[in-house]
Design a binder for these strands. Sequence first.
DNA 1: GCAAAATTTGAAACATTATAACATTTACAG
DNA 2: CTGTAAATGTTATAATGTTTCAAATTTTGC
Lengths: 163, 163
Amino acid sequence: MSARAIPYRPHNHDACVSQALTDARAICQRQNARLTPIRERVLELIWQSHKPLGAYDVLGELSSDGHNAAPPTVYRALDFLQQHGLVHRIASLNAFIGCTHAGENHTGMFLICRGCGNVLELTAPAVSKEVGKAASDEGFRAENTTLEIAGLCPRCQAEPDHD
Amino acid sequence: MSARAIPYRPHNHDACVSQALTDARAICQRQNARLTPIRERVLELIWQSHKPLGAYDVLGELSSDGHNAAPPTVYRALDFLQQHGLVHRIASLNAFIGCTHAGENHTGMFLICRGCGNVLELTAPAVSKEVGKAASDEGFRAENTTLEIAGLCPRCQAEPDHD
DNA sequence: GCAAAATTTGAAACATTATAACATTTACAG
DNA sequence: CTGTAAATGTTATAATGTTTCAAATTTTGC
């Protein structure tokens, strides 16, 4: 998987999207999972930006497409994409974002800028290690970690209300 | 603040509750905040157990009390309690739980057992430190961390569907 | 190829969680 | 007391997510 641009910085976002879609197709093929037109379209919509998108935002975009969809359509597609590690749900925002580490076995950590709304996904092994240690110190078997950090990205620290 | 029992283990829970209420009164007094009857009652309800309680569960309990409350009443009380560090919202569950470190300046980390539903709140300085490091490596100014770990508590690993 | 089975999608209704807006009451300071 | 701010009541509505069952599509075994 190739290196990704920092969402807080201007970049060729079309490249992000097409890379994500290419990766997704490969991953689904490898897993014998069916990346149907609806699912692919939802993934593409989620990848429109590095800002998390709500399920009903996705629904709205689908409707603009002329696609007459109901909520379950979107939630099912999002479930599928989550299951295959292609999108993440940001619990603190009730919203979804494209996974920038698809295919890698990872525990995501999300830096959420309250200024511009962009989200950066990190893999921080040192954090995962300490989390695992803290859990096992309590005899707890960790299965799923939600780690979301709200704050200000570098750009918004300097100049607020960006992008 | 005194040591707390482990929620996964049987303990005298009434002591938890009354300690929490006593602490809350002291904290509010210190902060010149008004722990009104409604707010105190909501806090007590949240502390009924170590399982997170939804806002509408609280609402239901208030109604059983004979108190004719509407959603905003509960959400306002919960906002107040959160603001003063007396309860936490568990984003991954849309539910609320009493803070076991009220008064201490802390970043909570929650171990959520999917077996029994109990939640243990930890303070893990090593985790906080690594999280802070990971964020500042990206130039990100962290303001608020959500860290929720779903899994199985020691008791439920041995014997499922407990409590 | 073809029929049976499984998966995916459509569609309608509903459930849950949360907030907006404005009126009323209560607490408190002077 | 009385004016002001804080807290609560009340109604309505928004936002998010699920259940259920039917129809269509794809896959599989033959």
